[in-house]
Design a protein around this nucleic acid. Structure first.
Lengths: 146, 146
DNA sequence: GTTGAAAGCAGGAGGGT
DNA sequence: ACCCTCCTGCTTTCAAC
């Protein structure tokens, strides 16, 4: 039941509680209550409009892997991770300590960003051709397998 | 003005148009009209609830890079990219043709997934320690630099 | 772009299982 | 604990301007 709500809200975050209630065959107050519980439990952390950067004049998307020298990590977080180009920043295991997803208006802009990142470690940059999936909803199916 | 709306909606996708109107000092119908335009122009592609996988019993998040053999790409898209574990899938330039963000319930589950991906090419897997940024809003600031 | 009226929605109180 | 029905105040939407 909660999975159904999560699925609907991940696909359309602006669906009204009345509509949501219809879809799950519950009354509106009961539905509202369940969603509030999911929010307070930290399962739902927020709602967001999904934007297409390329429609906003940001045609370039890239993944920049950075092997940050550990002493430089605090400054890297301050000066690189917080740059507006950075949409996602993950600290990961392995040789490339950080993975950044960035968007840029021009190649020159990307170059400038990569040069900034280079100050804190070696980088490897991959341009994104296309995204076959983006922010796919988390579903109950994930519990079929181990 | 549209940037202001985009910013507000990316941070709180469920904000009412009435509230939105107050924030941008416009009437509600004018605000609704502007948002509809942004939607139809493809700038806003949807709205989504943001969910925390680790609160749903999916404590493991990983980035799997896959160097897919080109002849296997169609099958890779069908059988790997569409797996429910895959939240993001990007086709990129460089040696690692694909970057997948996956979530799993257990290490065994991740292992199983990586073995599936291995059938289509060599993989490199990084576990995510933490995410310093996730789906950060696209802002007007991006147009200060080139 | 604005206003104003009608329909629909959200959030609370109270009661039933 | 969970759900339902009613009621009041907002929100949305459509019209006219």
């Amino acid at each position: 039941m909660d999975w159904q709500l999560l699925d609907l809200l991940q696909r359309d975050g602006r669906m009204t509680f009345a509509e949501l209630a219809k879809r799950v065959s519950l009354s509106a107050p009961a539905t509202t209550e369940r969603v509030r519980r999911l929010e307070q439990a930290g399962v739902i952390t927020g709602y967001a409009a999904v934007v297409a950067p390329h429609r906003l004049g940001l045609p370039i998307e890239a993944i920049v892997r950075v092997r940050v020298r550990s002493l430089d990590t605090p400054r890297f977080r301050e000066r690189v991770v917080t740059a507006p180009q950075v949409l996602d920043a993950d600290h990961v295991t392995g040789d490339d300590c950080w993975l950044l997803r960035v968007v840029c208006r021009t190649m020159a802009g990307l170059e400038e960003f990569v040069e900034l990142a280079q100050r804190y470690g070696d980088t490897t940059t991959s341009l994104v051709f296309s995204s076959a999936a983006r922010n796919r909803p988390v579903t109950r199916e994930l519990f079929g397998n181990p």
